[in-house]
């Protein structure tokens, strides 16, 4: 499972527990994990059930392969529209391979929903609105928005639990429905590689060139030389 998604899963399960404990008016809350991927992504959805999620849903079709963030968001949006009765979409803030952090905002855009990224705490929530806190570079922001909405979360929001034995047994038996392109009524040109505006051509680690200069002499001489060098470079 993508590391950031583990925090999203945990937050979803905690919200369910919060509502079910009656602290938020005893609403019936269901947490559904949705993933787009190849058939083996079923395992990730089962893992999320072992962590307390009620059910999993896999979006899988050869036509979805090669999707960039836009096509991924388009496919997810179709599925969420089909689920219909939803209040809050929680996403991991980014993947650990692509690192773009774009799927959340794009998905919200496609569903015409408010989006709040990098949420570090859900302060208040009821059936109509949510109030969250998020950490920006130089400040905290507290934002309230109507529901439904989408938020993305990172590792500062919670400590994900260890799976439970009952959860693992439930996950083992769970059937994960698979929705394909026909089921989602999505056209080939909207999904996968054909629905993507971007294409990854090559991934490589940039080569970093290091230039090493050794300053010799007494301590005083070395400090003077270093000072001169740094000044020339405009560092000090």
């Amino acid at each position: 499972m993508n590391p950031f998604d583990t925090y999203a899963i945990e937050e979803g399960v905690r919200l369910k527990e919060r509502f079910n404990s009656g602290n938020n008016g005893n609403l019936d809350v269901e947490v559904i994990a949705v993933s787009m991927g190849p058939p083996q992504a079923e395992e990730v959805l089962k893992e999320s059930i072992s962590l307390g999620v009620d059910s999993g849903l896999l979006l899988s079709d050869r036509a979805f392969a090669g999707a960039d963030t836009w096509a991924t968001a388009a496919t997810l949006a179709r599925a969420i529209k089909k689920i219909d009765d939803y209040k809050l979409i929680i996403l991991g803030k980014q993947t650990f391979d692509g690192d773009t952090g774009q799927v959340g905002p794009e998905l919200a855009h496609k569903l015409n929903l408010p989006f709040i990224g990098y949420v570090s705490s859900i302060l208040e929530i009821d059936y109509k609105k949510v109030k969250v806190k998020r950490l920006m570079e130089d400040r905290y922001e507290i934002i309230e928005t109507r529901l439904p909405a989408a938020i993305s979360v990172g590792k500062d929001i919670n400590v994900p639990r260890v799976p439970s034995l009952r959860g693992k047994l439930k996950a083992k038996k769970a059937e994960i429905p698979v929705w394909d392109k026909n089921c989602l009524d999505i056209k080939e040109k909207e999904a996968g590689l054909s629905g993507s505006y971007t294409k990854v051509i090559k991934i490589f680690t940039p080569k970093v060139k290091h230039e090493v200069k050794i300053i010799k002499g007494s301590a005083d001489e070395q400090v003077n030389e270093l000072y001169k060098e740094l000044k020339e470079l405009g560092v000090i």
């Binding site: 260890v162 034995l165 693992k168 047994l169």
Partner: peptide
Amino acid sequence: TEEQQMIIDICRQIVDER
């Protein structure tokens, strides 16, 4: 059994992470 292995896996995760 699979269930017994699950118990071990859960405990190992608690041991390693917590």
